[in-house]
């Protein structure tokens, strides 16, 4: 790809040297075209706004659905298997098929895309909320009970804050995936930046496809960084406790024995998700 870009870049330089009129790169259909950004700024902004609201609404709804589901799965052993199984099955359905299957239920509209994204996000969120709740030390629970905490206060005052690292890790994965998956919503006309990619594909408009793709990746990265910041703010104790090894495995071993690169767990138990949990298409 970079070789190709280089070629076109050289063309662009030549065209620029030959001089002249704005919109050259548009008529030459080049990949990188500042002219496109300036002339279609409004279109890009609208598409980005649609992309952002679809993603945000989906992830927030998914969180609202996932939390009771996770609590139910924890409360009733019988619900545990079905909840995890069902969300995993939903996760396996390819995005294009998911939107197509939801089409007759909702008709063409944003709700198809939002519902699809909610269903996808559920898998990661339910798993991570459960993992987070299970990681709460029994001592903390006992202490809270001993102090007279009722079930509600125990959940929201002790268990939820302590499971925030896992929850936030899941939220980040769900959000980044949702940003990428929104593009496929272009099939029903509600794909945010995906709409521009889809149009650009039909009209071979290279600058539009590349610009929309790049903004899409930037959105995902920005969302991830923002959520990471929120996570840091909400869980100051994780960093404070990161210096002390908390896991049994580490405790059973002398400080110098750990043979070098200690595996992919930087900074304690933040990334509790199995590395596989991620939906890309």
């Amino acid at each position: 790809m970079s070789g190709v870009d280089g070629l076109y870049g050289a063309d662009a330089a030549l065209a620029g040297a030959a001089g002249k009129a704005g919109g050259d790169c548009l008529s030459a259909n080049e990949w990188i075209c500042p002219e496109y950004v300036t002339s279609r700024g409004q279109e890009l902004a609208d598409a980005t706004a649609q992309h952002v609201w679809i993603t945000v609404v989906s992830v927030v709804l998914a969180l609202l659905v996932a939390f009771p589901l996770a609590l139910a799965a924890r409360r009733w052993q019988r619900a545990y298997g079905p909840v995890l199984g069902l969300t995993t099955i939903l996760y396996t359905v390819p995005s294009l098929a998911m939107y197509a299957l939801l089409l007759p239920l909702f008709g063409v509209g944003a709700s198809v895309v939002v519902t699809g994204l909610v269903l996808y996000s559920l898998t990661v969120l339910v798993r991570n909320i459960l993992a987070g709740l299970e990681s709460v030390p029994d001592d903390a629970r006992e202490a809270a009970r001993g102090m007279g905490y009722g079930p509600g206060r125990l959940l929201f005052g002790v268990e939820l804050p302590l499971s925030l690292p896992a929850l936030m890790a899941g939220l980040r994965i769900a959000t980044v995936s949702a940003v990428a998956l929104t593009t496929v919503g272009a099939i029903v006309g509600f794909g945010g930046l995906g709409n521009l990619i889809y149009e650009g594909m039909d009209s071979f408009f290279k600058a539009q496809v590349l610009t929309a793709s790049v903004i899409c990746v930037l959105l995902a990265v920005l969302a991830d960084v923002l959520l990471l910041g929120v996570q840091r703010l909400l869980t100051p104790w994780v960093r404070a406790g990161a210096r002390k090894p908390r896991r049994g495995r580490d405790a059973g071993r002398g400080p110098g024995e750990d043979g070098g690169a200690g595996g992919p767990e930087p900074g304690g138990p933040v990334d509790t998700v199995p590395a596989a949990a991620g939906k890309e298409a």
Partner: peptide
Amino acid sequence: GRAVPTFAVLVL
């Protein structure tokens, strides 16, 4: 891999 939309890469 998660942040890059597959659809965009296919079209590109």
